[in-house]
């Protein structure tokens, strides 16, 4: 279970829709670069950031997948994914990157309580 001083970053927006996702991942990386333990929770359309088949989109648009893969180099290896979000988007867990961990929606409030700091993107 999470370390009490860990930062929880919540990702709720899909790639290629807005800057929210990028900013959320950047916040996680900066905290990780400082040695702060970081956990990520993907809710709603945010789960789409973990699709392993995603590409890079239009010219000048940065792909998300390389950044997701890079998280482990910043020692960010807890990537929780809302099971309910997957169900409502009809995405199967096998379509996601390896290190994603499903979390039942009933456990989400508990996850919020366990973290001293929460950033919501």
């Amino acid at each position: 279970m999470p370390t009490p001083d860990a930062l929880l970053v919540i990702i709720r927006h899909a790639p290629h829709s807005s800057n929210w996702l990028r900013e959320g991942l950047d916040a996680a990386l900066v905290a990780g670069a400082f040695g702060q333990p970081v956990h990520l929770l993907f809710m709603g359309q945010g789960v789409m950031a973990l699709l392993k088949e995603q590409g890079s989109g239009g010219p000048g648009q940065k792909a998300t997948l390389p950044t997701i893969d890079m998280l482990e180099m910043y020692d960010i290896d807890k990537l929780w994914v809302s099971e309910g979000a997957l169900q409502s988007l009809q995405i199967s867990a096998d379509s996601l990157v390896e290190n994603a961990t499903l979390i039942a929606d009933q456990q989400i409030p508990g996850l919020f309580q366990q973290h001293a700091k929460i950033l919501n993107f």
Binding site: L29, G32, A33, G35, A63, P66, M70, M73, Y74
Partner: peptide
């Protein structure tokens, strides 16, 4: 090449 970003110090050490 792999991550499309140059590493900060911490991931540099790890890599």
């Amino acid at each position: 090449q792999r991550y499309e970003m140059a590493p900060a110090m911490r991931p540099l050490v790890k890599a």
